[in-house]
Write a protein that binds this DNA or RNA. Structure first.
Lengths: 225, 225
DNA sequence: ACCTGAACACCGTTCAAGT
DNA sequence: ACCTGAACACCGTTCAAGT
């Protein structure tokens, strides 16, 4: 009797999680248990042998994303943290569904914990006090996650694309908006011309923050690095 | 024949939106169409006379929140933007369900547009160029939304509360974590003692960013305000 | 040990019908 | 003009049963 379709590899937690991430990437949203099961050629309830429930599934997916983010390394804390921030943004671009879920885990996975430990290690060893390290980390992650949140909504890959999008959006408005929201229209017009480069914009804000954070380090240290 | 329960006020869009916000505040999540209808003593389908669909409902709810955020006003752009940021955080604290939805509107409402226009007005009139005004706005909103996102997950009202929460979380871990994540444990221990004050933390990061942003202003201007 | 089938209590939304 | 009832195509998850 037609034994069970082409005899798939046995399911296990890792295979379930990786399939879930792949599906989420492709539809930019966490898949439902039912579509995930279908993708794996299995009945929905089969998944519950490998994940406790949907939240446990998301926990596992997010830890896979954390595993892709580079630790801050190198002698100079600033460039180390800079590269780490850029690596985080890139991971969030590859996995847009993860934005808004990364920092919301009640049960952080091992990759999550390792990453946070590595970031704190970088800051503490660069001379930041416990308090200022917390300030620095909090400010940087707020910025990174918030930027990713805004980027998620307007997924333009090139400045040209974003410029056009702004221009057509502007063209759709009734003529009254020019009088009601003059500054908004000005920005829209300028952005329509120049385009909006997310990668550049991200680094501008990031560098503003990093420069300020540098001031939090004990000033009696030598200015080297 | 029992006419229709206690003859409620007629439904209209505003009543629907306000009831939705009140329900969302109370369960810290956007209500389902069905529970919202029940709250209004009406069958789910009755709502569709007043909102096009669920997204239209959320659009309306978010615009009510934008209506609560103070415009940046005053002679000094920095204190104006500072107060505006604090007002935004407070609105997001009152309406945690709105975090992650504010900047995701494909159809921004009038309060949303008015607010963005007012913020850009403040920056442009303070002497920022079009480009630097965009940098400043982007960086600040990234920070504000990202901070609110992190705050949403750990809803402690007082530093003491957060200190206790950190301590119990730490106590639940197996002893091995101390060796695997020494820097993480150090921060947890310190935070357990000192507590974590969200309001203070928010302003520290905010001021870091504002100080850096000040450097983006044309330097040939007088340094006054 | 792992997977299945049927069922439960939910969703948002349609359509045609009532008043 | 506004509200209703029944239905459709979805959800996550339970329980008892199969192999």
């Amino acid at each position: 009797m037609a034994h069970q379709a082409p005899r798939r590899n046995r399911l296990n937690r890792d295979r379930v999680l990786r399939a879930a991430v792949a599906l989420a990437d492709q539809r930019s949203d966490v898949p439902t248990m039912r579509t995930l099961a279908q993708e794996l050629g299995v009945v929905p309830m089969a998944l519950y042998k490998h994940v406790a429930n949907k939240e446990d599934l998301v926990d596992g997916m997010i830890d896979l994303v954390f595993g892709e983010v580079a630790f801050p390394t190198g002698a100079d804390w600033k460039t180390a943290m800079r590269q780490r921030a850029i690596s985080m943004r890139q991971a969030l671009l590859r996995h847009r569904w993860a934005v808004g879920l990364m920092e919301a885990r009640m049960r952080p996975g091992p990759a999550d914990l390792r990453h946070h430990n590595a970031v704190l290690a970088c800051l503490r060893e660069a001379g930041f006090s416990f308090q200022t390290a917390v300030h620095a980390y909090s400010a940087l992650d707020s910025y990174i996650y918030g930027f990713a949140l805004q980027e998620k909504t307007f997924p333009f890959t090139t400045p040209e694309e974003s410029g056009e999008a702004v221009e057509t959006m502007l063209a759709m408005q009734p003529p009254s908006v020019a009088q009601e929201y003059p500054y908004l229209v000005e920005v829209a017009l300028e952005l329509g011309k120049s385009g909006y480069d997310y990668a550049v914009e991200f680094q501008v804000g990031l560098d503003l923050l990093l420069d300020s954070i540098d001031q939090l380090r004990p000033q009696w240290r030598s200015a080297a690095s």
